[in-house]
Design a protein around this nucleic acid. Structure first.
Lengths: 180, 180
DNA sequence: CTAAGAAAACCGACTGGTCGGTATAGTGAC
DNA sequence: GTCACTATACCGACCAGTCGGTTTTCTTAG
C-alpha cells in the first residue's frame, strides 16, 4: 500500500502548501512547479491553466468533506465533538485543503466561495441530524470556525492558547453543560 | 465638525476597502489610487511605498482596538456580549480594518501577524478582567472569531445564517446559561 | 488687498521586473 | 511510437516604484 503520490497529486499538494503557508500571491506557477519538484512544462502538461489546478483542488476538498461528513453521520453521538476537535488538526488533509481553498475564496474567487458555502451546508445538515437544535449547531460551527480561524492565521507557527487541545477540551466540557 | 477626510485617510480607506472586497492581490497601487480618486503619483506623494501604506493601516488598527478595549473596560458587565455582537458589525471601522489586516496577515506579512496577535492579547486581558474565567474567555473569543470569520468570507455579500443577529442573540443566551 | 515666492499636493509617463501562459526541441522508460 | 516529462525561450499583461513637471495652497512683504 501507500502508493507514492502521482505527479498530479504532488502538484496539487504543492499548490495547497504554498497557499497555506505563503498565501495566494506566492502561489505562482513557477513556485508550485518548484515545490512539486517538476518543471513548469511538467505542470502545464498536467494542468493546462491555473484555473484547472484550482479546480483539482476544489475536487479534492469536495471528496475530503464528503468523507468527513460520512464519518460524522456514522456516529451522531460524537459528531459535534468530532467537528470541533478536528478543526484543531491543522495538518490533516481536510483542514489543509480547507484553509487553502479559503485563501482562494478571500481573493474574490467566486467558485471557491460557492464551494465553501456548500461544504458549510453539508456540515450544518449532519450536525442538525446529530444535535437536533439549530442554535446549538450554529454555536458548534462558530466554535469550529473560530478554532480554524486562529489556527489558519498563524500559518504553521505556534498555535495560540485558544487552540491548545487541552483548552478546547475544557471549552467543550463547558458547552456540554448547556441544556437545550 | 465632520471634517472631510484627508487624502491620506482616503487612501487608507481605499486600501482597506479593496483588501476587504477583492483581496490582497487586487490591492494594487493603481487600484488604490483610483478608488481614492487620486493619481498614482498622488498616492506615492503621501506613501512612498506600499509598505508605508500598510504601516498606516496598522496604525489605524492599533488606534481602533485601543478605543474598543477602552469601551469594554468601561463596562465589564457587558464586555463579553459587546465583544461577540460587535464582531457582527462588519461595517464598523474596527471590523473593516481588522479584516483588512487579516487579509494581509494571510499573505505571510509578518508585521500584520504580530499586530493581530497583540490585539488578541489586549482583548483577552480585558475579557479576563470582566469574566475572570480563562476558558470562558476563550469560548467567547472563539465565538467572536467564528462570527468574524464567517462574515469575512462572504466579503460584503449576504450574511450566512450563523451571523444573523437574532441567531447570535439566541446563542449568547445559550452561553449565558453556562455556570462557571 | 495683493503680488510673489515657497511649500505642499498632485499628475501621468516611464522603467525594471514578475507572472500566466505558450511554444518547442529533446530525453528516457515502456 | 507514445507517455511523461525536462529545459529553455518567449510574449503580453500587469505591477511597484521613479521622476520631471504642474497645480493648488499657504505665507509674507509691500
Amino acid at each position: 500500500m501507500a502508493t507514492p503520490p502521482t505527479t498530479a497529486q504532488r502538484l496539487i499538494d504543492a499548490y495547497e502548501d504554498i497557499l497555506l503557508t505563503d498565501g495566494e500571491r506566492a502561489a505562482t506557477l513557477d513556485a508550485i512547479a518548484l515545490r512539486a519538484g517538476v518543471s513548469k512544462g511538467g505542470l502545464t502538461y498536467h494542468f493546462r491553466s491555473k484555473d484547472e489546478l484550482a479546480a483539482a483542488l476544489f475536487d479534492r476538498l469536495r471528496l475530503l468533506v464528503a468523507e468527513d461528513v460520512a464519518i460524522m453521520r456514522a456516529d451522531p453521538a460524537t459528531a459535534a465533538t468530532y467537528y470541533v476537535t478536528s478543526s484543531l488538526d491543522v495538518r490533516s488533509p481536510l483542514e489543509r485543503c480547507n484553509v487553502a481553498v479559503t485563501r482562494l475564496a478571500q481573493g474574490s474567487h467566486p467558485e471557491a466561495n460557492e464551494l465553501l458555502a456548500q461544504c458549510r451546508t453539508l456540515w450544518f445538515e449532519v450536525l442538525m441530524e446529530a444535535m437536533g437544535h439549530e442554535d446549538m449547531v450554529h454555536l458548534v460551527m462558530l466554535l469550529g470556525d473560530g478554532i480554524y480561524f486562529n489556527a489558519s492565521l498563524t500559518g504553521t507557527g505556534a498555535l495560540p492558547a485558544e487552540t491548545d487541545p487541552a483548552t478546547i477540551d475544557r471549552i467543550i466540557a463547558l458547552v456540554r453543560t448547556i441544556r437545550y
